[in-house]
Each structure stands twice: as structure tokens, then as C-alpha cells.
């Protein structure tokens, strides 16, 4: 019993750690954006303030499904965060990448369900675009992961991270260069930043899913994005950038990924949804396919 309680405590710690890290990144990301656009930008702790403020304001809800959906969404994403190794440390022992990919879907589904239940068609349109986009980026992403599974005969993220701990040259970014390019492009869509921010699409569909969220719901929405950042940058670091032996190196690497994303986001415009998917399939897809074919035949 004690072991279980200890694990639960550790997991709770990870949960809050993930959320905080994500919020920190979001704040820093806003500064990066601002500086590129020759502004000053808010302080780095701005997102924390935003979330706390959200939780203290009253909110509206339309029905129980909205509550259920939003809770399920963040719950799912936090559960996913439990499975992403942080600096070679994984509480649960197993961290299969397939679990991570599928568990992330609860986050999506929960949010989709919650905001659709709000009754605003803008939200649903945003969701439909997001789901369509998911079809675009998941395929190249999975192809590259399968290349890695072929090589290591294991789908465990910790294994990948540990394998890259032998110095610079062992990083997968050099062993799977084509794959990394594909994943970088797909990653931009995964995080929902320009040119693939179809889900939010501020000027088009009134923020999409966020349109009916207020108060703590909006707060949870922020946290969703935060944890998503944690999970996804963590994935990239573990897959390609060598994992990390210490927590600060890990944070730095994760932020480096996010930094690149925000830079691209600041200078590009949004694609149309069918353009976006097509580009993902053609560009990310071909690099991923090449990587997969190469690994399958010669790897």
C-alpha cells in the first residue's frame, strides 16, 4: 500500500511539474515571439498569472458534458505526461511510445467533446479541422517511430533515450536525419503553431474550441496547451535529441525545440486546411517514407 501511495505522490508531482514547465515555456515563447516582432513582450511568468486569474473568475457552462469533457481532456494529457521519460527517469517503468500516442488522443477527444457540447459551431469547426490535421501529421510521425522500432526491436522511449546517452554522435538526429526533418515538420502541426494552427485559427473561427471557454474552463484549456507542450517536446527530445541525464539539460533541450517552433510560428502565415494536410503528407510524408524504407531495407 505504501509503495502505491508513494507512486501516486510522485505522479502528482510530475503532474504539477509538467503543468508548470509548460506554462513556463508558454511565457518564454511569448517573449521570443515578441522580440522577433520587435516588441518587449510580457514577463516570463505571465502564463502562471493568466491561469491563476482564470481559476479565480466565475465561468459559464452549458451542460455536464462540457465539464466532463474538459476534465477528461486534461486528465488524459496528464496521464500521458506520466509516461514520457524526463531525464532518463520514468516513474512507471514502462513508457511505450504507442501508449503515449494513443493516450494523447484522450486529451484530444475530451477537449473535442467538451467544446462541442458548448453548442457553438465555431468550436466544432475548429475541432473538425484539428482532427483532419491530425490525420496529416500523425502518419509521418508514426512512420519515423516505426523506423526506430525496427532498429531497437522495442517501442520503449526510455530505451531510445538511454541509447543516445553516449555523447553527441549517438543522437538520433544524426542517425535518422530524414526522419528528424519529417518529425520537425509534423511537430509544427502537432503543437498547433503556424503554419498549422488550424485548430485555433484566431481570425477565422473565433478561436475555435476556446470560444465558449471561460474562467476555470479557460484555465484548464491553457493547462492543456501547457501539458501538451511538455509531452510533445519531451517526446522529441527523447526520440532525437539524446534524452538527458539531468533535469536542467532536459529543460534546456525541450525549450530549444519549442524555441524553433515559436520562431517559425512568428514568421509564417497559416495554410488552408487542405493545403496543410497535403503539405504534411507530401513533405513530411516523403521524408518519413524514405527514412522508413531505408531502415527497413538497410537498417
Amino acid at each position: 500500500m505504501n509503495a502505491h501511495a508513494l507512486t501516486a505522490l510522485k505522479l502528482t508531482g510530475i503532474a504539477f511539474g509538467a503543468m508548470s514547465l509548460g506554462l513556463l515555456f508558454m511565457g518564454l515563447g511569448r517573449i521570443v515571439s515578441a522580440r522577433i516582432q520587435r516588441r518587449i513582450g510580457p514577463p516570463f511568468y505571465q502564463s502562471f498569472i493568466d491561469v491563476i486569474k482564470c481559476f479565480t473568475k466565475t465561468s459559464i457552462t452549458h451542460n455536464f458534458v462540457m465539464d466532463l469533457g474538459i476534465i477528461m481532456a486534461l486528465g488524459g494529457l496528464i496521464a500521458t505526461a506520466f509516461f514520457v521519460p524526463f531525464a532518463n527517469f520514468s516513474v512507471l517503468g514502462s513508457s511505450s511510445v504507442v501508449i503515449v500516442l494513443y493516450l494523447m488522443s484522450i486529451g484530444y477527444l475530451g477537449m473535442a467533446m467538451g467544446v462541442s457540447a458548448s453548442g457553438n459551431p465555431n468550436a466544432t469547426i475548429g475541432i473538425s479541422r484539428a482532427l483532419a490535421l491530425m490525420l496529416g501529421y500523425k502518419i509521418p510521425f508514426v512512420m519515423v517511430i516505426m523506423a526506430m522500432i525496427l532498429t531497437y526491436n522495442s517501442s520503449d522511449l526510455l530505451t531510445y533515450a538511454l541509447a543516445q546517452n553516449h555523447g553527441f554522435g549517438s543522437w538520433h538526429i544524426f542517425k535518422y536525419p530524414l526522419g528528424f526533418i519529417a518529425v520537425e515538420i509534423a511537430f509544427q502541426a502537432m503543437v498547433g503553431e503556424k503554419p498549422y494552427d488550424h485548430m485555433i485559427a484566431p481570425a477565422e473561427i473565433a478561436s475555435g474550441p476556446m470560444v465558449e471557454l471561460s474562467g476555470k474552463y479557460l484555465g484548464i484549456g491553457f493547462l492543456l496547451h501547457a501539458v501538451q507542450l511538455y509531452v510533445e517536446t519531451g517526446l522529441i527530445v527523447n526520440l532525437f535529441l539524446g534524452g538527458a541525464q539531468t533535469w536542467y539539460i532536459m529543460m534546456v533541450k525541450m525549450f530549444a525545440v519549442y524555441f524553433t517552433t515559436m520562431c517559425i510560428n512568428a514568421v509564417m502565415a497559416r495554410y488552408r486546411i487542405e493545403q496543410g494536410i497535403r503539405h504534411l503528407w507530401i513533405w513530411a510524408g516523403s521524408f518519413a517514407l524514405l527514412q522508413l524504407v531505408y531502415t527497413r531495407i538497410w537498417g
Binding site: 481559476f55 479565480t56 473568475k57 466565475t58 465561468s59 459559464i60 457552462t61 452549458h62 451542460n63 465539464d67 453548442g119 474562467g215 476555470k216 474552463y217 484555465g219
Partner: peptide, 9 residues
Amino acid sequence: GARQHKVAM
């Protein structure tokens, strides 16, 4: 968090 009001669809 702070409480929520129920509003019409």
C-alpha cells in the same frame, strides 16, 4: 476553481 453558472445552449 471559482464556481460556474449554467447557461442556455
